[in-house]
Design a protein around this nucleic acid. Structure first.
Lengths: 236, 236
DNA sequence: TGTACATCAGTGAACGCGCGTTCACTGATGTAC
DNA sequence: TGTACATCAGTGAACGCGCGTTCACTGATGTAC
């Protein structure tokens, strides 16, 4: 009976998801190192060994959380970009930045899992790479779109890249096809800025230093847009 | 006998330092969460309870490591700045950037302790604030020096700050007295970029993405100098 | 439709481990007269 | 200089805890004829 087999499988899928949800919630109170299979089992009302029917080990559960995290962030960024007018490149950029920041502040421990100190003893498997690139893919497309629309004209302020830097830029250009090397490097600078800021904010470095962080962030987002040379499409 | 009392105290100070050193080394293999008093005691050849003669608790030992870390980083940055020609502002900036990066790559777990995910259950006490600001103090002085030497003339590319952002800038201007608000905000953007880059690098986000990281970093450092508007002193 | 068998989920006990911290204690080192 | 006392460093046992993982097991759910 295919229907009943599906029934069992459906329960299984649901419980698997429930375990991951509880684990995610525990992450939010204990941090990545404090994630405990026994605690998850307790909250599930199961005996601890039963978890092994669903996840072969603690590391495996962590991997699931990491992949889910990258996907959640990636989706948020994709949605933010898609919701903006395609020709309004500064607007798309701002939407992307704020979506990253908002997601990080709403899920600080998941953010820490993805972008903070590596979890000791945990080695991320190959499975995570696909999900990992979703956010930066959106960014690369945004930059490439702007360039090809003639809306990426940065102020002249930088020396030409060294050959080694240019070589790196050439490899990164995969993410933003057709964009010249020095603009790729500017984009990289801006991208690292974004995560630097968000990490400072999520990890508490701005405590007692910056109060209205959203306002300061919003202004810096515009500043970075200017540095990259993002303008509204001249065809718009 | 003052001399003999000093002898005992000297041994005490030495053992205290030795404990901290061992703890720091363990940090480097286990990460912040894995720091264990018992393991430290084992390596000291002491019984675990003996550690309590020197540190009242595990958190206290962690606090010492954090303060030492900020001081080590701060010293490295101070030395790098001091070793540069005072009028060569881009040079000073590059020296500061590379000293942060070099220190972080040489002490990745200490860096993680200072700038990575907060240690769960640990609340940094007030004692850390003085050491915490050493690096940014150097940076603030560098920017202020450049401004007053007429060597801070950024390209025009940013909208004027919102009132809220300007208010934040006014408070941050303590670090770089006399520098106008919009330049303070550019400096803040650059500073967050620096730690964003270094965190990406230390935490492995550039793995399989950027190979010659030093070259890419060096170029981006110059790019950021241009964004801030740092130039060599016109009086030099 | 009914029965015999196979698969799977969950149990409960156990293994072996490491942790932070407390406490009463023994000796050695330092102090005061 | 010598002795009686106080301070301090380090010991060893113990408390109470939680962890990941294994394993033989019981029932329930699904499958094949």
């Amino acid at each position: 009976m295919t229907a009943s087999r599906t029934a069992r499988e459906r329960v299984r899928a649901e419980l698997t998801r429930e375990i991951a949800d509880i684990a995610r919630r525990q992450l939010a109170t204990e941090g990545a190192g404090g994630l405990s299979l026994r605690a998850v089992a307790r909250e599930m009302g199961m005996v601890s060994s039963a978890i092994y029917r669903y996840f072969p080990s603690r590391d495996d559960l962590l991997t699931t959380l990491i992949i889910d995290g990258y996907n959640a962030l990636g989706e948020a960024v994709e949605r933010a970009d898609a919701a903006s007018a395609p020709d309004d490149f500064p607007g798309r950029w701002a939407a992307v930045c704020h979506s990253v920041r908002d997601w990080a502040l709403a899920h600080p421990h998941e953010y820490a899992l993805l972008f903070g100190s590596p979890v000791p003893g945990y080695q991320a498997p190959q499975d995570t790479v696909a999900a990992r690139a979703r956010d930066v893919t959106v960014f690369g497309r945004l930059v490439a779109d702007a360039f090809h629309a003639g809306a990426l004209t940065p102020p002249d302020m930088a020396p030409p890249p060294s050959p080694a830097a240019a070589a790196e830029a050439a490899r990164l250009a995969e993410l933003m096809p057709g964009v010249p090397e020095d603009l790729v490097l500017r984009a990289l600078a801006t991208w690292t800025w974004l995560y630097g800021w968000v990490s400072f904010e999520v990890f508490g470095q701005f405590e007692n230093t910056i109060e209205d962080r959203r306002a300061a962030f919003a202004h810096t987002v515009r500043l970075q847009a200017g540095m990259m040379g993002l303008a509204s499409s001249p065809n718009a």
